[in-house]
């Protein structure tokens, strides 16, 4: 029975069915499967497989996004039943598009990728002020603050974040990663961001490197 449920968990993620994933998680936990095991041996291998298929260009982005949504729904149910300090996550990321900037397609893809890679992501959406990034990061005890900027006129807010973190003595507490079309490694070096990534897969890789996971 357990074997069957774990296989089902993988399948439901691959199919990207959010409702089914949450329901399966609830039923499995009620049925006595430990939530951590359900995650680690069912849902996580499912999303890892989807990630692999995507990297190999066997599936399209919308399928990855749906799988990531299903994963989030399943993880939420599992994590509710796991004591906070034992929660299964590779790290906590606060993500958003900077102030004055309403571009969020790239940022949302990064969100899906990070979720699919096992990070707990708090997506603050677009047009997010520096203060709001920091406040949320402190509230959820984040490891990383990730910012997206798509306009030459809004990149400056990524710098503002670095400066504010330094002023508040928080630079050591949160790692930072930046991205978006006008942004590059040179800009990251210039403002003192810990990492830059060109695309969503790169974002997951760089954050893993930053956190050593």
């Amino acid at each position: 029975m357990k074997e069957f449920i774990l296989t089902e968990a993988k399948k439901v993620i691959r199919e990207g069915d959010k409702e089914k994933a949450a329901e399966l998680a609830r039923k499995a936990i009620e049925g006595g499967i430990p939530p951590a095991e359900l995650l680690e041996e069912g849902f996580v291998p499912g999303i890892t497989e989807v990630g692999r298929l995507f990297e190999n260009e066997e599936i399209f982005l919308p399928e990855l996004v749906m799988a990531a949504d299903a994963m989030k729904a399943a993880a939420e149910v599992c994590n509710e039943s796991i004591p906070k300090d034992e929660a299964v996550t590779k790290g906590v990321v606060v993500l958003g598009t900077v102030k004055g900037d309403i571009h969020d397609i790239g940022k949302s893809i990064v969100e899906s990728f990070l979720s699919a890679s096992g990070f707990e992501v708090h997506d603050l959406g677009r047009d997010v002020s520096t203060a709001a990034f920091i406040e949320k990061a402190q509230e959820v005890n984040a490891n990383v603050i990730a910012t997206s900027a798509l306009l030459t006129t809004t990149m400056g807010y990524q710098q503002e974040l670095e400066e504010t973190l330094k002023e508040k003595g928080l630079k050591e507490k949160f790692k930072t990663i930046i991205g978006g079309a006008p942004v590059n490694q040179k800009w990251a070096d210039q403002i003192g961001a810990d990492a830059y990534a060109e695309d969503a897969a790169g974002a997951a890789q760089k954050i893993s490197d930053l956190l050593g996971v």
Partner: peptide, 12 residues
């Protein structure tokens, strides 16, 4: 292209 070498609020 954008004038990325000036202060962002003054770019336009």
């Amino acid at each position: 292209v954008g004038a990325t070498d000036v202060a962002p609020p003054l770019i336009s």
